[in-house]
Design a protein around this nucleic acid. Sequence first.
DNA 1: CGGTTAATGTAGCGATCGACACAGAAAGGG
DNA 2: CCCTTTCTGTGTCGATCGCTACATTAACCG
Lengths: 200, 200
Amino acid sequence: MGRGRPRGFDRDEALDRAMRLFWTRGYQDTSIADLTEHLGIGSPSLYAAFGSKASLFCAAADRYQAADGGRPGAALAEAPTARAGVEALLRENVALFTKRGGPRGCLLTRATLSCPPSDTTVVAYLERSRRDRLAALRARLRTAEAAGEPLPSDDIDTLAQYYDAQVQGLAVRALEGATRPALLRTVDLTMAAWDALSAR
Amino acid sequence: MGRGRPRGFDRDEALDRAMRLFWTRGYQDTSIADLTEHLGIGSPSLYAAFGSKASLFCAAADRYQAADGGRPGAALAEAPTARAGVEALLRENVALFTKRGGPRGCLLTRATLSCPPSDTTVVAYLERSRRDRLAALRARLRTAEAAGEPLPSDDIDTLAQYYDAQVQGLAVRALEGATRPALLRTVDLTMAAWDALSAR
DNA sequence: CGGTTAATGTAGCGATCGACACAGAAAGGG
DNA sequence: CCCTTTCTGTGTCGATCGCTACATTAACCG
């Protein structure tokens, strides 16, 4: 153990910077030259540590989902009710998508629309992430249904896809430059709709 | 007039094919080589007719908005009520985003997330299109408000941004592979929310 | 110390990017 | 017919793409 020359940079810090770059510029528009410059390392070091641009992206996206990008999902899971969970999911996403000094929108949504289909590694990763996210939403709604909570609809699949679409819509609008208060107002509307539909 | 060697291809047909390519692959991942191949013309002909990749995209996007891509907006404007207009907007968009044999999702949304910020021509074009779309939605809601129609909220700006976000969400989900029936079910939910919020 | 192992910096690989120079081809005008 | 004008095909430009060969440096082991 510890044989050979030690790595001259912090792997996690490099991943953070890579995450930020992919988040800001998308997948395809982030070049190896961009990465080596902002990570402060040469390309051989990058390839030795991460293997390829695709696998570096996957590692950076993992880090995204484990850090800031995971907060909305965690908020959904931990909330006492499905309503509180969905509202927290939406509000945490707005916070994430419009954080001051941070890239706007969602790293994964952005990558989904900017990754060439030929890059099967990244495409498969993104599909998996998306499916997991949808499954978490569905699961939270199902347990709420089992607990007898009032829901806007008894079609859990549709509900999950509906709120997932809300999140994607927020991500796109944030990237287009929508302000945080404006996004929060649409979240208010979404939650007002939840109440109006559940009350019946 | 008519001097010089006549063009060897149909300009509008070429624009249609370019539109289809940009719609399918996004802006950045559509190369000049892809275009010359699918349009059946050499690159000098392409540049003579359209000027650059960016201006070709703008022309193709104009054609998109004048053809299929313009149907949702037209449906919104022509509907007798705001509710019918928004519902038609959403359903026409679902039809557009999931048309058999056609590219999935929205050409403009896709380009927004896959165009490098350095390409200021395309970025400016997309911003303008987006602003126009939002303005049309706002205008339709305002006339409805003036006509005394019941609306889900009296905040027209928020309403417009809300339904615009619905459309973007549908576009992303369509690109992710969501089926037309699934998208239509979420539209049903959105319209049920309209009714529930307007009734009160 | 020397020897082994691994990370680094330089430098460049083949491929592709958007865009164009150039000469030839096809039309109208005289 | 020739001249002008415009479009087309071949070939290629410099830049950049993702990626890597090679020699060097820096650590641990004995």
